[in-house]
């Protein structure tokens, strides 16, 4: 371990630490939510290790609970994770020249918080070892914190009575992810159109209404963005 790596790791961890505490309620709720649809603690932790993406985990739980077909679950998870394509494209230059195994680890560990806090500094540094330390230390910390707090929730779910409608915690969690996103006008339009579309098209076979709603939402957001830019330009 060289000095650049250690300096990067220390700085990355320090930058991310305050924000990382925000993961705690999410993780606990995700643990409880996985148990609420009937997963055993082992199944819940298995899902948590294999998926390691809170939005995709929570978003697919209602589909798993109702026995939806695998392709539908896969596509829903894909859509919920699509934002990572953007993060991945933005961060790719920072991993240029790193070994395959490092990039594979980064691909599993890349989470929203570390990207939000650290992408600017990572892209600005020209020392590959410093960049790797700056990324991997907070990412590993986020993983440990997430796994242990999900475990806490998954085990703690035992003591909560089963008739408390706990599955609604999934809906609350999904709402809490959506609300901060909808701060800009086009994003709010995308959310409203997506939600309304899914409700109105619910009769479509194979739960295609979900995807029709998502497509309508993306199109509406895109259109709202264009409209806003035209008005700003005029």
């Amino acid at each position: 371990m060289n000095t650049a790596f250690r300096l990067g790791a220390r700085e990355g961890w320090r930058d991310f630490l305050p924000m990382s505490l925000g993961l705690v309620p999410w993780a606990v709720v995700t643990g409880i939510a996985m148990r609420s649809i009937g997963l055993s603690p082992i199944e819940a932790m298995g899902m948590n290790l294999l998926v390691y993406a809170g939005t995709a985990q929570l978003g697919t739980l209602p589909l798993i609970a109702t026995g939806a077909p695998l392709w539908l679950i896969f596509l829903t998870a894909m859509v919920l994770n699509l934002r990572f394509v953007i993060f991945s494209a933005a961060l790719a230059p920072a991993f240029h020249g790193h070994a395959w195994s490092r990039r594979a680890r980064a691909s599993y560990l890349l989470v929203d918080g570390v990207f939000a806090v650290g992408s600017e500094k990572m892209l600005a540094s020209d020392d590959p070892e410093w960049r790797w330390g700056y990324f991997i230390a907070p990412s590993a910390w986020a993983w440990c914190l997430w796994q242990s707090c999900v475990l806490l929730g998954a085990l703690g779910a035992e003591v909560i009575p089963t008739d408390w409608s706990l599955e609604f915690m999934v809906t609350i969690a999904l709402m809490l992810m959506m609300i901060p996103m909808a701060r800009t006008r086009p994003m709010l339009v995308a959310a409203l159109a997506g939600g309304l579309g899914a409700v109105l098209l619910r009769e479509l076979p194979l739960r295609l209404g979900l995807f029709a709603g998502i497509a309508i939402g993306i199109a509406a957001g895109f259109a709202a963005e264009h409209w806003q830019q035209r008005r700003a330009g005029a």
Partner: peptide, 14 residues
């Protein structure tokens, strides 16, 4: 792609 997560979350919640 930026609009996909918000649209998907709303389509699940609504």
């Amino acid at each position: 792609l930026r609009y996909a997560p918000a649209a998907a979350l709303a389509a699940l919640v609504a």
